[in-house]
Nucleic acid binder design. Structure first.
Length: 417
RNA sequence: GUGGACGUAGCUCAGUCGGUAGAGCGCAGGAUUGUGAUUCCUGUGGUCGUGGGUUCGAUCCCCAUCGUCCACCCCA
């Protein structure tokens, strides 16, 4: 036997038995998003590597060691996208979409070379949402309310919303200096990773899980205290809106996101049901990114959610899948098998919404009925010598008690319609 | 990238203190020569992840490798 070829580590097939939950999430998201006037955009999976270096940040883990980068045949460095915001911004600039406010969303696979773990894969799927050209707190609020609505529509509960403001760049810079000074004075008590970050990305030290570091961080100066009147007001308006809408949240002053481009609002929806990868949806404001990527200065807010994580939560909640078909056509005997395909076509013409599976491959009544049952169909339609003689279909309910009946074509079409 | 657990039938797992393996579910057929889901019977199932080493002999012990899972890390 030849050696099996298997899927690449951390990249998984989504099998038919799980696809219904994916559809449910995707369909619900599309519905909710269009309810807020967001339009879908589709961008390539591959971009010039530089796009991600410039947007995500050179010193982030994603860019430093998690990208699938390669040279194409003419020597350009390309990368599989590790996230969607950069491409979305690039496309918006490239096509001049930013002359007016835009509400966009996208979905699809993202790629990061990480060690696979529950809720973390090398190919994973996100739905991302971005709004451009709007600088008020109302759009930040809209995004959060939109996600809350989505969880309701999906029947998901128990998420925790954490919220923070990172301030504007100058405020953050001033804070950063104080933070570095404080942490530097306690450098001997920090863990190794945090020590390194002290000089590359000191804000990230704030959300270190290391107990010793946490102790130091607890007494560190707070970013909140360094916000100016404007950014503070922006944040307060969002909080007020959430209060009014009855959405619970927790202000977490140590919430900083891993990507460099955020400013002001950042938020995360977190669950305790998925182990270490509990962030189900996260995002924030990134007013500087468009300009950083060569566009005209444009305010922006966005977030992304991890579909594998939502799928797993829905599975844990035991959401049953819809059966894939309504009826299963059983055809026994040479003549019936010959007649079945055309009769099935006529039925599909007569009842367009009907999901009808026709038995293929012959076999006894017994075996065909077994297949009919396994298909999940509500009805078995029966075509044998007897039915052909009388020019009728047998119809037998499979999900409830009931006798098999005989119906002519028109009666059957009316019944199934 | 670091640390740990684990890879036995399509699936979930048992087992062999080293002598090449078993259950349940599934699948196929029958009891019912035209009727599923229940019940009963029969059958089908595996180079014990892969490669090497130790041994008379390895699924079991050792090493490597690939993969899965968990935590760190990272993040959606």
């Amino acid at each position: 036997m030849t050696k099996h070829i298997q899927a690449i580590r951390g990249m998984h097939d989504i099998l038919p038995e799980r696809i219904a939950i994916w559809h449910r999430i995707e369909d619900t998201a599309r519905q909710v998003l269009s309810g807020y006037g967001y339009a879908e955009i589709r961008t390539p999976l591959v971009e010039v590597t530089d796009l991600f270096k410039r947007s995500i940040g050179e010193v982030t883990d994603i860019v430093e060691k998690e990208m699938y980068s390669f040279e194409d045949r003419n020597g350009d460095s390309l990368s599989l996208r590790p996230e969607g915001t950069a491409s979305c911004v690039r496309a918006a600039i490239e096509h001049g979409l930013l002359v007016q406010p835009q509400r966009l969303w996208y979905r699809g696979p993202m790629f990061r070379y990480e060690r696979p773990q529950r809720g973390r894969y090398r190919q994973f799927h996100q739905i991302g949402v971005e709004a451009f050209g709007l600088d008020g707190p109302d759009i930040d609020l809209e995004m959060i309310l939109l996600t809350a609505r989505l969880w309701r529509a999906l029947g998901l509960q128990g998420f925790r919303l954490e919220l923070n403001s990172l301030g504007d760049p100058d405020e953050r810079l001033a804070y950063r200096e104080q933070l570095v000074a404080y942490l530097g004075a306690h450098a001997d008590q920090l863990d190794a990773d945090s020590c390194k970050r002290l000089h590359t990305n000191p804000l990230r030290v704030l959300d270190s899980k290391h107990p010793r570091t946490q102790k130091i961080v607890a007494a560190a100066p707070s970013l909140m205290d360094h916000l100016g009147e404007v950014t503070r007001g922006h944040f307060e308006r969002i909080r007020h809106g959430l209060d009014e809408a009855g959405v619970d949240y927790l202000v977490n002053p140590r919430l900083v996101r891993g990507l460099d481009y955020y400013n002001r609002t950042v938020f995360e929806w977190i669950t305790d049901d998925l182990g270490a990868q509990g962030t189900v949806c996260a995002g924030g404001r990134y007013d500087g990114l468009v300009e950083q990527l060569g566009g005209r200065s444009t305010p922006a807010v966005g977030f992304a959610m991890g579909l594998e994580r939502l799928v797993e939560l829905l599975e844990l909640a035991g959401h049953a899948a819809e059966p894939p078909v309504d009826a299963y056509l059983v055809a026994v005997g040479e003549r019936a098998q010959q007649a079945a395909p055309m009769l099935a076509e006529r039925l599909r013409d007569a009842v367009p919404a009907l999901r009808l599976m026709t038995h293929c491959g012959g076999g006894s009544f017994k075996s065909q009925f077994k297949k009919a049952d396994r298909s999940g169909a509500r009805y078995a339609l029966v075509l044998g010598e007897v039915e052909l003689e009388r020019d009728v279909f047998g119809i037998k309910p499979l999900r409830e008690e009931g006798e098999q009946r005989e119906l002519g074509f028109d009666e059957l079409a009316a019944f199934l319609g």
